[in-house]
């Protein structure tokens, strides 16, 4: 096994419906596999839970999008306000009809817009970065049937990096939990 391990990415099983995929993900998770992933053409409610993505501190760390978004909001809001303060009070003070230089209520609209802008940019780019996208190459793309993961089929892949991974066992396991089509995935250029 050891010489093929470098190029073996994992074992992929195909399922017909979101229901069977969730049941299968639960079983794979219960069997103690950690490095596995499910694939669906739309967000299936309950799939993250079935894969155990929400569990424990690891689960919290896995989805840092809300925290990153909050950070972006703070950065945008504070940066937006103090930028205006710096411009209109410190570096370029202008007397506009005798108003105080730090006329903070007038700075609120821009502060608000910058808060939203910061939070949105962090949410989107944070989500992409955590998902490691863009990723032009993925070994799964070499499986012709995997094209239907963005159409009408559901897949589950047990990855070879898992501690418990063994090609024959994983294949048998996937066949045992109702995968219609099971194939090994190779990482080759």
């Amino acid at each position: 096994m050891s010489e093929t391990r470098n190029t073996l990415y994992g074992v992929l099983g195909e399922f017909d419906s979101p229901k069977t995929l969730i049941a299968a993900a639960r079983k794979v998770h219960a069997a103690g596999y950690e490095h596995f992933d499910a694939f669906a053409p739309f967000p299936v409610p309950g799939l993250s839970e079935a894969c155990g993505l929400h569990l424990g501190l690891k689960g919290w760390r896995r989805n840092l999008v809300p925290q990153i978004t909050l950070l972006g909001g703070f950065a945008g809001g504070l940066g937006g306000f103090f930028f205006q303060y710096w411009v209109n009070v410190i570096t370029y003070p202008l007397n506009i009809a005798g108003r105080p230089l730090n006329s903070w209520p007038a700075f609120i609209p821009v502060t608000f817009e910058m808060t939203v802008l910061g939070a949105s940019l962090f949410a989107v780019f944070g989500m992409l970065a955590l998902n490691k996208l863009p990723q032009p190459h993925c070994p799964l793309f070499s499986v012709p049937r995997f094209k239907r993961a963005t159409d009408d089929k559901f897949f589950l892949c047990i990855e070879s990096t898992d501690k418990k991974f063994n090609l024959a066992d994983a294949t048998k396991f996937l066949e045992g939990i109702g995968a219609g089509y099971v194939t090994e995935v190779r990482d080759e250029d």
Partner: peptide, 24 residues
């Protein structure tokens, strides 16, 4: 960008989408 419908990706994608809706 290499999207493949991974459950891990959808997991974060959905929170980002919900947050964007809340911000918009």
């Amino acid at each position: 960008m290499g999207w493949r419908g991974s459950a891990r990706h959808w997991h974060r994608y959905q929170s980002a989408y919900l947050l964007l809706a809340g911000l918009a």
